[in-house]
Design a protein around this nucleic acid. Structure first.
Length: 582
RNA sequence: GUCCCGGUAGCUCAGUCGGAUAGAGCAACGGCCUUCUAAGCCGUCGGUCGGGGGUUCGAAUCCCUCCCGGGACACCA
């Protein structure tokens, strides 16, 4: 099924080609009307076109409108201002389209005509450490991107590139052995977290320990039995912890998506040798580096990418190169999306540049750093505890539930205490995720419990409530959402509120299509908020169960059902589950 | 010092490829429940779009420059 915008674009492009056969690359520039008095959609090409061919914009618009003639899609085309074409969609078209959506479980969201293999790299927590707020945004944003691309029919491979290798594990394992705490069978992630901190402290002050820790890294790399056993134990405990957090957060990452740094370990030597052999890398001050253009260090010297330390060890850049190579060559990636914070922008720019220079990535493969800003507290400083520590996701989730429960008890006394607990955990997580997704991801975002858990404004509770309210109407009429959808009532547009809602419902496919390209989840959030507000206005003005005629009742039930499904599907793409009452 | 990202209403944020009179929410104030969840709706108030130049029929959006804030910049990840 094609989207409304695409239908209009196609018609206008054809008319443009007929009106101006010599110009073949003109875009009709179709968009939603900015103001209600400008119709439903508008075409803005005439001004741009007029400049190119040196004619009056109004004349260009008129010539194209003549070519367009009449159509079932619109019942009015008006040229306004300098040359805007205002499009009023016909009620018949709206009704037909809505009817199609009602019988389509994809709500008109098209499957990609050119599905790609897309690797989405997100979350990336560290083994032997608790997941904390530093992992939250990547997990939430990455999961949404994976869900959207997946729904569009792309072959999505989720990759959790966990930090499970490197000097810190030598340090931790050595400390565990020295303090006779190497038994990992019954240990909790919080204990490992504490041991890690102790080990780090000792490492910084105790030279002898630091030396032994470094030797332990060599032992780990050399497959030493005792060391490897402990390491495996650490990984196992961490996986359990990740799964626990992901389950609570509703993040679609499991064991099979974990491919940590250790996985690429035995590819690094070959990779650096290949770079050296092809004369792309050279030894500088003992380290192996790849020279790049356009990167300057703080002393104005050219900045190369370091791929092997002077002590022979490898760096995360080396691992990232190996991972990208693996994803392209073995996983067959057409597109690789890295969901990490904005501070790593230069790192990825350099890694991408080396991949390109080495010829490991063809022009058909797109590499994208989907970056995001930091989480800030109310003081506009990084969001941490009072003592300056990272807040664990476990405690963050606990607080989200508690706060949601408090609001629920406050607002609705009809809920049983077990219902409150179940609902609160869902609503708390929804609020947490939605607050993160609703601002443009590149900007830093200010974390505020009060704002995210509020039931007013552009928040998850507001959207969930709109959904619940629709179900409540159905319940009052002794119907379920499923029954209303299956009944497929004939939709008729009889007033402005119904029309406004209809136009909004038909927009969802375009929003998702754009999201798949731009990977900006806040656009979907803004759409869902607009949809919920539009429904609330409809709800105020248009009685559903008490509509004047049975036909009107069926039509409004169908509009309500489409709204409920759109909200549910939209939220699902954001990784948020709806609730049936609240 | 070089580069990257931000700066829009008191606060938090939208603003799509350069399009029409810059929009929401919160806060403040005023209305609307014998009728499907008032967790809602309607209204009022609120702007030199960081400053200054430029390009254009048209600039929050593009270019230049300056100011402010954040970040990155070789052997950590």
């Amino acid at each position: 099924m094609d989207t409304v915008k695409n239908i209009l674009s196609t018609s206008f492009s054809l008319a443009l080609a007929r009106a101006y056969p010599t110009i073949c690359d003109a875009d009709a520039m179709i968009q939603l009307a900015k103001q209600p008095q400008f119709g439903d959609y508008q075409a803005n090409f005439a001004m741009v076109m007029a400049k190119r061919i040196k004619q009056a914009p109004y004349d260009v618009a008129r010539r194209v409108v003549q070519q367009l003639g009449t159509s079932d899609v619109w019942d009015k085309l008006e040229i306004a201002g300098p040359g805007f074409i205002n499009i009023s969609l016909s009620d018949a078209f709206l009704q037909t389209r809505l009817q199609l959506l009602l019988s389509d479980n994809r709500l008109g969201i098209p499957l990609s005509t050119s599905p790609q293999v897309v690797v989405v790299d997100y979350s990336g927590a560290n083994v032997a450490k608790e997941m904390h707020v530093g992992h939250l945004r990547s997990s939430i944003i990455g999961d949404t991107i994976a869900r959207v691309l997946d729904f569009q029919g792309h072959r999505v491979t989720r990759q959790n590139h966990v930090g499970d290798w490197g000097t810190q594990f030598g340090m931790l394992i050595e400390y565990m052995i020295q303090t006779k705490q190497q038994d990992t069978a019954t240990r909790q992630i919080t204990e490992l977290n504490a041991l890690y901190k102790q080990a780090k402290q000792k490492f910084d002050v105790d030279e002898d320990f630091a030396t032994r820790a470094r030797a332990r890294v060599v032992a780990l790399q050399g497959d030493d039995k005792q060391t490897t056993e402990i390491w495996k134990g650490l990984v196992a405990i961490s996986k359990e912890h990740f799964n626990d957090i992901f389950t609570r957060l509703g993040i679609g990452l499991r064991d099979e998506h974990i491919r940590g740094e250790s996985f690429y370990n035995d590819r690094l030597a070959d990779l650096t040798q290949e770079l050296e052999h092809d004369a792309l890398a050279r030894v500088d001050q003992g380290a192996l580096v790849v020279e790049l253009e356009g990167f300057i260090d703080r002393d104005d010297n050219p900045l190369p990418l370091l791929v092997r330390k002077s002590d022979g060890g490898y760096l995360y850049a080396t691992t990232d190169l190996a991972a990208a190579k693996f994803r392209i060559e073995v996983l067959g990636a057409d597109r690789i999306v890295y969901v990490t914070d904005a501070r790593q922008a230069q790192h990825f720019a350099m890694v991408f540049a080396v991949l390109d220079k080495a010829g490991w990535v063809s022009e058909q493969v797109s590499l994208e750093h989907v970056s995001f800003g930091s989480m800030l507290g109310k003081d506009k400083k990084p969001f941490k505890t009072r003592s300056g520590e990272m807040i664990s996701l476990a405690s963050l989730l606990d607080e989200a539930s508690e706060r949601a429960a408090r609001v629920l008890r406050d607002k609705n006394s009809d809920l049983s205490s077990t219902e409150v607990v179940t609902l609160a955990s869902n609503i708390g997580v929804a609020a947490l995720k939605y607050a993160d997704l609703k601002t443009e991801r590149i900007k830093d975002y200010m974390f505020s419990w009060e704002r995210m858990i509020a039931f007013e404004g552009n928040t998850a509770p507001y959207l969930l409530n709109a959904y619940v309210r629709i179900l409540s109407v159905f319940r009052k009429g002794c119907l379920t959402l499923q029954e209303v959808v299956e009944a497929g009532g004939r939709i008729v547009i009889t007033n402005g509120r119904e029309r406004e809602l209809a136009i909004r419902l038909l927009e969802l496919p375009d929003v998702v299509e754009t999201l798949g390209k731009e990977l900006l989840p806040h656009r979907l959030c803004n759409y869902l908020y607009a949809l919920a507000s539009t429904y609330h206005r409809f709800y105020e003005a248009c009685p559903v169960l008490l509509a004047d005629t049975i036909e009107l009742q069926h039509s409004r039930l169908a509009l309500s059902a489409l709204t409920a499904q759109s909200l549910k599907q939209g939220l699902e793409l954001l990784g948020i589950h709806t609730v049936d009452k609240m």
